[in-house]
């Protein structure tokens, strides 16, 4: 092959690479990289109602955010939410995956039933939870069930104390996302080498022992990924909080997770992009620290198999 032909071949490859990858990369730069960089820029300026600010304030916005009790409260709200939703979803989806994996008859039916809520929106689930299951009146399902045991109705959502609203919010998300994690666990269970189970059977291991010494250790990678996804998704919670807790267009002063707080700060009446951007940067950094801490296990892009 002559040198010019080889060069042309290489140029062809370079050209085709950009024909295939170019449209995506351009879009990613314009709609992901540019906003992020612009936002970092805005976070150092006083920018009420403007995206081309002139008053540089250094780290002022960041200090304001960290000193703002409402912002710190939103981080606490996330922490409380995560403490409930992450372990509950993890254990429930793993348990159901283990049960479904061992059934022969009606396996597809059970899998579909648990997977189906994944197709439902948070708005619709919020509607069912707020107006039907956990409506504070006697005709709500939860209070109707309490009535079987002679218990009084509970106003699930209208009181800050005791915080019954957590039960409403956590069960709604559990119902919506359990099926997806069940599918991830099912895929993990199916990848386990059946020889391991045969060897265990020969050694006389049964039931819990097999689960503890074979199934769970073999699911370690899947489990780590599920935990990380659960945590990141909980951090981004917005839809169910907004739709379940706000009434007549106003949101109560408590139970504001980070994104709800940011929504009202940056896009509320003030349009305070400086503080909003500083808040977004702080939240992104928190997520990055969590993700990078576990990133090795996810091994994004490291699998050139």
């Amino acid at each position: 092959m002559t040198l010019s032909a080889r060069l042309r071949g290489r140029q062809d490859r370079n050209l085709w690479f950009w024909v295939f990858v170019g449209p995506f990369v351009i879009g990613l730069v314009v709609f992901v990289y540019v906003p992020i960089i612009w936002s970092i820029y805005l976070s150092f300026f006083n920018s009420y109602n403007t995206v081309t600010p002139t008053e540089f304030v250094g780290f002022g916005n960041y200090l304001d955010m960290l000193r703002d009790p409402a912002f710190v409260d939103s981080l606490w709200t996330f922490a409380v939410f995560a403490v409930f939703i992450v372990p509950v979803t993890f254990v429930a989806s793993l348990a159901i995956a283990l049960l479904v994996a061992r059934t022969r008859v009606m396996q597809a039916f059970f899998r579909s039933v648990f997977f189906l809520p994944t197709a439902c929106s948070y708005v619709v689930a919020s509607l069912i939870w707020k107006m039907s299951i956990f409506s504070g009146v006697r005709s709500g399902l939860a209070n109707y069930v309490l009535g079987w045991f002679g218990l009084d109705s509970i106003p699930w959502l209208s009181l800050a104390q005791p915080p019954w609203y957590w039960l409403v919010i956590v069960t709604a998300r559990l119902w919506l996302q359990l099926g997806f994690y069940m599918i991830l666990f099912l895929a993990g269970i199916q990848r386990i080498n059946p020889n391991l189970y045969e060897a265990a059977a020969i050694d006389g291991a049964e039931g819990w022992k097999v689960l503890r010494h074979i199934t769970l250790p073999q699911l370690r990678a899947t489990s780590t990924a599920v935990l990380l996804l659960l945590l990141i998704n909980a951090f981004q919670a917005f839809d169910e909080f907004y739709n379940i807790l706000s009434t007549f267009g106003t949101y109560p002063p408590y139970a504001r997770p980070p994104l709800v707080y940011l929504y009202y700060t940056a896009l509320g009446s003030g349009q305070d992009f400086g503080h909003g951007s500083a808040g977004a940067v702080i939240l992104t950094l928190i997520i990055l620290i969590v993700a990078l801490g576990q990133g090795r296990i996810l091994r994004l892009g490291g699998r050139d198999d």
Partner: peptide
């Protein structure tokens, strides 16, 4: 988390 910067854009 990037909805604020994206909104700005």
């Amino acid at each position: 988390v990037t909805f604020v910067p994206s909104f700005v854009l």
